[in-house]
């Protein structure tokens, strides 16, 4: 049985999913280049990488299932066990770990009663959480960082991380600190497969840490040198002022700590 959810996420490898898998391959000069996004789509409809999903990719690309499985097992984002509605990844690479990532993982494991790479049982809310520690997610200036379905949750601590998972399970609205309302893991996987969900305009352009240098420069009147006008034609001007605004955040320091 297959269904389509309001978000466009489908369940099951039905004819339309197979068609979408083919569409992914068609984006590339050689269809096999589409294998990574195809496996993201498989995760979106199956909740994990399944044997059937591997077989479907193999058939479409005309390669062996063993070759596809070899690729699927190489990359950490592909999961061979069912993932919960919310994948919570706590960065425990050195910088985040030192700044509190280790303490956050410890607290969450205790609070959720699960270990690394495990999923909470359905507590009656119908919403489950998979917990894992992840490597540096390119957000070190917001350490400690937690990723929920690969959205940034910046400057976390054990208490805020605990509230976060409770809110997720309660179905409360949770927004990424630099993105939209958190969607489900399957919805996220569909976007990664290349099917945009139209949420690009949500959230700020940048968080406060991203803007620290720029604001410092503005406050001191520092700018890049002007382009020398002699050597260039009329249609280049160095620094177009005009539409600057400071709406993203009020505070240059992190999270009010």
């Amino acid at each position: 049985m297959t269904t389509t959810e309001p978000s466009g996420v489908r369940r099951g490898l039905d004819a339309q999913t197979l068609e979408e898998l083919r569409q992914i391959g068609a984006r590339y000069p050689q269809a096999r280049s589409g294998l990574l996004p195809m496996l993201h789509l498989v995760q979106s409809v199956e909740g994990q990488v399944t044997a059937e999903g591997i077989e479907a990719c193999a058939q479409i690309l005309g390669i062996s299932a063993a070759e596809v499985a070899g690729v699927a097992t190489f990359y950490t984002m592909y999961k061979r066990r069912p993932v919960g509605d919310y994948y919570v990844g706590v960065c425990t690479n050195t910088l985040c770990a030192v700044m509190g990532g280790d303490a956050i993982v410890e607290r969450l494991e205790e609070h959720l009663g699960i270990g690394n790479d495990e999923t909470t049982p359905d507590d009656g809310t119908g919403r489950t959480i998979t917990l894992e520690h992840v490597e540096c997610n390119a957000a070190c200036d917001y350490a400690p960082v937690v990723m929920v379905n690969w959205e940034f949750m910046d400057n976390m601590d054990p208490a805020s991380a605990t509230r976060l998972v409770d809110d997720l399970r309660a179905g409360a609205e949770v927004r990424s600190t630099r993105g939209p309302r958190i969607c489900t893991w399957r919805e996220a996987e569909r976007v990664l497969a290349g099917f945009n969900d139209g949420l690009a305009d949500e959230g700020p352009a940048a968080g406060p840490a991203t803007l620290v240098g720029l604001r410092t420069a503005r406050a001191n009147g520092w700018r890049a040198p002007e382009a020398s006008t002699s050597s260039d034609d009329a249609d280049n001007e160095a620094d177009p002022a005009g539409d600057k605004q400071d709406s993203n955040d009020g505070n240059d320091s992190r999270g009010g700590k």
Binding site: A200, D201, P225, K244, Q245
Partner: peptide
């Protein structure tokens, strides 16, 4: 001291849009 070029539009309204 600082020379914002790449980052110069990061505080613009809806900087990510065309």
């Amino acid at each position: 001291m600082l020379t914002p070029v790449l980052s110069d539009n990061w505080d613009a309204d809806r900087a990510w849009t065309l």
